[in-house]
Computed example of a mutant assay.
Amino acid sequence: MDDPLSDEISGDMEIYDLRVTVDRIEGRSVCGMRTGDHFDLTESAHLSLPDGKHFCVYALASVLPFLAAKQRDLAAGDWLAQDSLFACPDPEERLIMRVSRTRRRRMNSADLT
C-alpha cells in the first residue's frame, strides 16, 4: 500500500516535511494570528507562508527548537513522538500550535550543511 507521506526521490536519508498550525488561541490574539494560520517547513529548512499571511516571530521562536527532531523518526516512547502541541510564550495570548507531518521525503545528506 502506498504511504501518503512518502516520496520516491532517491537519497540516503529520510525526513518529514512539517506544517505548524495555530490550533487554538485561549486568550486574546495580540499578534493578529487566527486559528488555522500556518507555515510549512519543507526540504529540511525551507520555511514558507501562504501569500499575504504572517506568523508571529515569538510563536515561531517557541516551536523552532523542536522542528528538527519532529522532522526525523523518533522512538515510540519518546515524549516528542507523542506530543505535537506547543505554546507561544505570550501569557495573555495563550496561542497553541500543532506540528503535523505532511510528507516523508528522501534527501541526500551531502546536499545539506
Rank of each mutant, 00 (worst) to 15 (best):
1 M>D: 13
1 M>G: 15
2 D>A: 10
3 D>Q: 06
4 P>Q: 08
4 P>A: 11
5 L>R: 04
6 S>A: 13
8 E>K: 11
9 I>K: 15
9 I>L: 11
10 S>I: 06
11 G>S: 04
12 D>V: 06
12 D>R: 10
12 D>H: 09
13 M>T: 13
13 M>W: 04
14 E>C: 13
14 E>K: 14
15 I>F: 02
16 Y>E: 02
16 Y>W: 07
17 D>V: 01
17 D>E: 11
17 D>C: 09
18 L>A: 04
18 L>F: 01
20 V>P: 00
20 V>R: 00
20 V>A: 00
21 T>V: 10
21 T>L: 01
23 D>A: 08
23 D>P: 04
24 R>W: 00
28 R>V: 15
28 R>M: 12
30 V>D: 07
30 V>W: 05
30 V>P: 07
30 V>L: 15
31 C>P: 10
32 G>A: 07
32 G>L: 06
32 G>M: 05
33 M>C: 07
34 R>C: 15
35 T>R: 09
35 T>K: 13
36 G>A: 06
38 H>N: 09
41 L>V: 14
41 L>I: 12
42 T>H: 03
42 T>S: 12
45 A>G: 11
46 H>K: 15
47 L>A: 08
47 L>F: 14
48 S>V: 12
48 S>I: 09
48 S>Y: 03
48 S>P: 06
49 L>Y: 12
49 L>V: 08
50 P>W: 02
50 P>M: 02
51 D>N: 13
52 G>D: 11
52 G>W: 07
52 G>R: 04
52 G>K: 04
53 K>S: 15
54 H>Q: 12
54 H>Y: 09
56 C>L: 02
56 C>W: 01
56 C>Y: 03
57 V>L: 10
59 A>M: 03
60 L>Q: 10
60 L>W: 10
60 L>F: 15
61 A>G: 15
61 A>L: 10
61 A>C: 12
62 S>E: 01
63 V>R: 00
64 L>S: 15
64 L>K: 12
64 L>H: 11
66 F>Q: 06
66 F>L: 14
67 L>K: 05
68 A>S: 15
68 A>H: 13
69 A>L: 11
69 A>F: 03
69 A>Y: 02
70 K>I: 00
70 K>V: 00
70 K>A: 00
71 Q>L: 06
71 Q>A: 07
72 R>W: 03
74 L>V: 09
75 A>V: 01
76 A>I: 10
76 A>R: 11
76 A>F: 07
77 G>A: 13
78 D>L: 05
79 W>G: 05
81 A>N: 14
82 Q>F: 01
82 Q>E: 12
83 D>F: 02
83 D>I: 07
87 A>K: 07
88 C>D: 03
89 P>S: 01
90 D>M: 10
90 D>H: 11
91 P>D: 03
93 E>F: 00
94 R>Y: 05
94 R>M: 12
95 L>E: 02
95 L>Q: 03
98 R>W: 00
99 V>C: 01
102 T>V: 05
102 T>N: 00
104 R>F: 01
105 R>M: 04
106 R>E: 01
108 N>C: 10
109 S>L: 11
109 S>H: 09
109 S>K: 14
110 A>T: 15
110 A>H: 14
112 L>D: 07
112 L>R: 13
112 L>H: 13
113 T>D: 07
113 T>R: 13
